[in-house]
Amino acid sequence: MSKSKEELLKALAEAVVEYDEDACKELSQEVLDNPNTLTPMEAVMNGLAAGMEEVGRLYDTHEYFVPEVLMCADALYAGLGILRPHIPKAEAGVNAQVVIGSIQGDVHDIGKNLVKMMFDVAGWGVHDLGRDVPLEQFVEKQLDTNSEVVAMSAMMTTTMLGMKKVIAMIKEKNPECLIMLGGAPVTKDVANLFGADGYADSAGNAVSEGIKMIGRLREFQASKK
């Protein structure tokens, strides 16, 4: 007997929490095979993303750490890869783009990838510049794509000052663009000083913050109905 809507959503969320990639794939296929039960969009937002919210709670309470969170993210992506192509563009809800990357001098990208996941889940157009990205590339890509958000990460103190320059360059040309900063050494004071609009202070907090943003997007999605 096929699962009810509630059962399928619960199973998807649990598969993410239990970092079970195979289950995420199977359940996502089950969603596609039973189009009358729930839509792919509902499965992403109220199944996979709901699971990731629980992962965020487990991270906040020190039950999960970054290795678990990374594996949960893999499970989420396994499901997303199957469901996303079947979400009609009009239903995706968010028609926005983000430019994301780790700044020049920084060869780490865990935090960046976790924040990127948030945008992927929410259906944003993501321009991932990778890591060790020269400052001008952020500005060029933002201008090329007219992206609403630029998200930058610097894991080390030694690279975070480059962010200040990028922010100034982008804000000068496009004051409306929102800037998110993440990375271990960036404190809220530094983010404020640099003129950034958003902040996440570590790979872990980045995902925690990112997950909270997923939660807000889910509320937004629900309120439109």
Binding site: Q104, G105, D106, V107, D132, T158, T159, K165
Partner: peptide, 17 residues
């Protein structure tokens, strides 16, 4: 990567892993 042309203070990093 030495970042010899950067105007900023950047510490050397490794480009390949």
């Amino acid at each position: 990567t030495l970042y010899e042309n950067s105007a900023d203070i950047l510490y050397p990093t490794v480009p390949n892993k």
